[in-house]
């Protein structure tokens, strides 16, 4: 029950802060849309007309995933940096629930809220481009859940780094481009990326949404890779976070001000 209360509290906080920082939220959505329009018209003007439709579909899926990864993984880093500077991180660290649980609930809460926003943006992008993708919820959902778990692992790594590094902002800027690389590069170009966090998931979602692949057509080995990545990155992320928390408590780094 205490886990559920923790999740509810963090969901509510995420929602309230999004509402209170409404201009920021609107600016974020607008930036997303303007960039998408830019890419969409770019493909239409200078792209190869024979592959135009498929290119636009690829752009929609990649771009949506990149945005989602950024909001989930990067946001936790910014949040921790802000909390450390504000003085609230120490308060969170004093919770008898343990800070890792709070961070996990934060990740889940921001994912749920961002997901709702992403769905709206996905439909807006499809409506603008006139390219309607295959939204097979039954197939996409299990892929997405496993992919998000590996994203959380990455989120924990970023959260840990943000606790111990005062100047993590520069790294977070670079991380946006690393995430773009991971979401935009197709696995056919670099198959080894299948073992990187969420790359396999994005590839499978692309296959479902663009090529119309169904659940039964996805090889078992792909699900095994997804499952392995989810467990591996989540455990690694969590262990790294514990290490950073311990390091910060040794050096007195829980407050950056």
């Amino acid at each position: 029950m205490s886990w559920f209360n923790l999740l509810k509290a963090n969901l509510r906080k995420e929602y309230l802060e999004m509402k209170r920082y409404l201009p920021n939220t609107i600016a974020m959505v607008l930036t997303f849309y303007i960039l998408f329009i830019g890419m969409f018209f770019g493909i239409q003007i200078i792209g190869d007309p024979t592959t135009q439709d498929i290119n636009i579909q690829f752009t929609i899926v990649n771009y949506i995933f990149w945005f989602f990864a950024m909001m989930t993984v990067n946001a936790i880093g910014w949040q921790i940096t802000n909390e450390a500077m504000r003085g609230t991180l120490e308060q969170l660290s004093m919770s008898p629930m343990g800070i890792w649980k709070i961070m996990l609930m934060r990740l889940i809460a921001s994912t749920v809220i961002n997901f709702i926003m992403i769905i709206a943006l996905l439909y807006l992008s499809m409506f603008t481009s006139g390219q309607w993708l295959n939204i097979d919820v039954g197939t996409i959902l299990p892929i997405l859940i496993l992919t998000i778990i590996s994203m959380f692992g990455l989120g924990f790594i970023i959260a840990g780094l943000s606790i111990i590094l005062k100047q993590v902002q520069a790294f977070l800027q670079i991380l946006q481009f690393i995430l773009a690389g991971l979401t935009f590069v197709p696995l056919s170009v670099a198959p080894f990326l299948a073992f990187f966090p969420f790359v396999k998931g994005v590839d499978l979602v692309r296959a479902v949404m663009i090529e119309g692949v169904t659940f039964t057509q996805i090889p078992m080995v792909d699900f095994l890779i997804l499952g392995f990545n989810a467990i591996f990155y989540f455990v690694i992320g969590l262990l790294f976070f514990f290490y950073c928390e311990r390091f910060a408590m040794n050096k007195g780094l829980l407050a950056h001000y």
């Binding site: 029950m1 309230l16 802060e17 504000r86 120490e90 629930m97």
Partner: peptide, 22 residues
């Protein structure tokens, strides 16, 4: 500085209680 400035007085109290599992 130990508070969330964009939450109300009551919301702050509720949030911190939630973080203790209540």
């Amino acid at each position: 500085r130990n508070l969330y400035w964009r939450l109300t007085v009551r919301e702050n109290l509720e949030y911190f209680a939630g973080n203790r599992g209540e």
